[in-house]
Amino acid sequence: MHLAYPAVLSALLFSTGLYGVLARRNAILVLMSVELMLNAVNLNLVAFDVWLSKTAQDTLHSGQALTLFTIAIAAAEIGIGLAIVLAVYRNRGTSDIDKLRDTAETDDDSEPAQPEPAEKAEATA
């Protein structure tokens, strides 16, 4: 198999995940897009490991070991990320990342606007 096939698919999946991270508003959809990017990296690691393990005789199979580590780290990341999203949702009533702008820098050095009480009640997608 040509190495270009998995490499191109991995690049396309990574770009798709990049679009999702930039364009989505729901925090959980952003986490899904992050998973897409991590899977693109995994596909690259597996493809290059198969290529290099056939080329060289002594190999550590570092690509597959790193893929397993990435999968485990992604599982941990999704657990912590969902805990954070649920905590934010419980406190703010929304998981819309466009509305979570408390630490945003404003042009003038005024106080950051406190969230309105009505904003907490509304639950958006």
């Binding site: 040509h2 270009a4 490499a7 690049a11 990574f14 798709t16 056939k54």
Partner: peptide
């Protein structure tokens, strides 16, 4: 941004690994 990243990555990857063959 995504289309630009995809175009750049695919171009670089295809240019680099065009002749590389994985023996399965």
């Amino acid at each position: 941004v995504a289309v630009a990243a995809a175009a750049a990555l695919v171009w670089v990857v295809v240019d680099a690994f065009r002749t590389t063959w994985i023996d399965l």
